[in-house]
């Protein structure tokens, strides 16, 4: 059944994907497809938008309206689509560099204005497509082609960033817990506002090989399991124990009218005002 769902939404003639063996991106895409099925929208009512990077190749494989834009700008393009097609489900997929570095400004402002878009972040802590450069979520001390002596900067916590900027649905999971991931993405799409699902995923080739994990998919998946801690468990852990870990779970899930709906309300108000004026005259 699950395979059938995936097949329903995939552009099978575009297989195989560009993703390397052991890459977690295909797992996230699988979750996304099942979430689309659970959400129950027609394929004609879904837009999938991406920027640049490995994750951003996702739209090419999915049979909906797909738009592969410029590096970091996917949310901006998606905003234009959503403003003019409020009934469409607009989903953005992006990598950690796309989201938190070059696209950071778009990310926080979409959160602030509660733009009704779902952002799924494929967070592998590395620039994979360009060959393994350090990213804003590369763990402290990890190695990358542009951090040959180890990363000296602390990583961005995308969940904290989204919460601080005002996103109304914020969650994190990993490719190690797929049923949970399916559930979070569905909730994110259903939320009437800006939703962020930060997904921890391995990059064996660009990250694993340089960080004692080798290219072995199993070792990399094991690493994902080790660096992710459910919220409940995290509450009982010390700061020391939590260093280098990503806490998973739902961090915010609130109802708050998004920008598009506010705009529609404004239009109706102006229309009524015009009609009333017409009656008086």
């Amino acid at each position: 059944m699950k395979t059938e769902i995936v097949k329903k939404y995939l552009r099978l003639d575009k297989m195989p994907t560009v993703w390397c063996p052991g890459c977690g991106h295909g797992i996230i895409m699988g979750s996304l497809l099942r979430a689309l099925e659970l959400r129950g929208r027609s394929k004609n009512d879904i837009a999938l938008v991406s920027g640049i990077g490995c994750s951003s190749r996702t739209p090419g494989y999915v049979d909906v309206h797909t738009l592969h834009t410029t590096h970091g700008r996917a949310i901006a393009f998606a905003t234009g689509i959503k403003m003019m097609k409020p009934d469409m489900s607009v989903i953005v997929v992006m990598g950690d560099g796309d989201c938190a570095a070059i696209g950071g400004n778009h990310f926080i402002h979409a959160a602030r204005r509660n733009m009704d878009i779902t952002a799924v972040v494929y967070n592998n802590g590395i620039y994979g497509m360009t060959g393994g450069q350090v990213s804003p979520t590369t763990p402290y001390d990890a190695f990358a082609t542009t951090a040959p002596y180890g990363q000296m900067e602390p990583p961005f916590d995308i969940v904290e960033l989204a919460l601080g900027a005002g996103a109304t649905y914020v969650a994190r999971s990993s490719v190690h817990n797929v049923p949970k991931l399916d559930e979070l993405i569905v909730k994110g799409i259903k939320n009437n506002g800006f939703s962020v699902i930060d997904v921890i995923t391995p990059c064996p080739i660009a990250y694993g090989r340089r960080n004692k994990l080798t290219a072995d998919p199993m070792k990399n998946m094991q690493w994902v399991k080790e660096v992710t801690v459910p919220r409940k468990k995290a509450e009982e852990m010390s700061e020391e124990e939590l260093r280098g870990k990503w806490i998973t779970g739902v961090f915010r899930d609130v109802e708050h009218v998004g920008l598009v709906n506010l705009y529609i309300e404004l239009e109706e108000k102006l229309k009524r005002a015009k009609e009333n004026k017409g009656e008086e005259a």
């Binding site: 834009t69 410029t70 905003t79 234009g80 403003m83 400004n105 778009h106 926080i108």
Partner: peptide, 23 residues
């Protein structure tokens, strides 16, 4: 519909997205 975006890059992206809807 009108939107003041966060920067010039975003406003250019937003109009392209909106144009794809036929606007």
């Amino acid at each position: 519909r009108f939107i003041q975006m966060e920067d010039e890059l975003a406003s250019m992206g937003a109009v392209i997205g909106a144009s794809l809807t036929g606007a």
